[in-house]
Write a protein that binds this DNA or RNA. Structure first.
Lengths: 139, 139
DNA sequence: TTGCGTGCAAAGGTTTTGCATGGCA
DNA sequence: TGCCATGCAAAACCTTTGCACGCAA
């Protein structure tokens, strides 16, 4: 397992990027392109390895939106307060919706008691279409 | 776009398979392996192309649940009564559980009506711990 | 006979890994 | 100094595509 305690130039570069574009979701290639564009030097494997580190540290969330397409990443502002509610991710516009809802908590209870399965809110994302994209014929 | 009206040996082989293992989820490789095991000859591209045809025809449903993992397919016996279901994936042992449950369908309804979000069952996976791994301290 | 279906191999794309080198502590 | 991080290239992985041949209609 990675530890990634080292403070390297590359790690800082990525941190700066994700801190700057907090709300945006980006792919590994977006990040690579952006950094090189700004005159930085970084390898693709480093990008992937550091992104994985940040996920482990809870700084990033990873989304898998479409088959064959690259995964996308998004900054997690406050890890602690995001553990006990569900997340809805729009596959069209990319919007992330945080849902605090008793009824959905009840559903997690139902799954635990009736299906013997303990849902991890932190790792689970419900994919679909948000209000604005509901009428879209896409995917 | 494919038409696939031709009644070929390969198409029939696949149809026989999916009719036999109706409820099961299978990947393209599962199917390939199973057919070869039974002494049949078939190419991988034919598998992919026919599976796509069956999806178009509404005979199959395709789930692409995880990045890097192969997509899995499921027979749709009767499109009309076709019940959606959720997928639970154990993050410890990797088991994938298919849950058909009215109460969970109700949850999808709740999300749609109250949170204006239409959940896509084919892309959504609920991550957590299954019964056997519930007591594990891991992850 | 016409043209779709098949199968092989190669390409496509993203992500992972092996290994020598370089940099943090 | 010791060990982790980096970067390049190659591999791994699933899926799609090009093309010649074969088979259904």
């Amino acid at each position: 397992m990675h530890k990634s305690n080292y403070k390297t130039k590359q790690r800082e570069m990525i941190l700066n990027h994700i801190a700057k574009y907090q709300e945006a979701h980006f792919t590994a290639d977006d990040l690579l392109f952006h950094l090189k564009e700004n005159g930085h030097t970084i390898g693709k494997s480093t990008i992937y390895r550091q992104l994985e580190n940040f996920i482990t540290e809870g700084k990033l969330r990873k989304y898998h939106l479409e088959e064959g397409m690259p995964a996308c990443f998004q900054y997690v502002e406050n890890t602690a307060k995001c553990t006990e509610h569900f997340h809805l991710k729009c596959t069209i516009c990319g919007r992330l919706i945080h849902v605090v809802c008793q009824e959905l908590d009840g559903m997690a209870d139902h799954i635990r008691t009736h299906h013997k399965f303990q849902v991890n809110h932190k790792k689970t994302v419900l994919y679909g279409k948000c209000e604005d994209c509901m009428d879209t014929n896409l995917k």
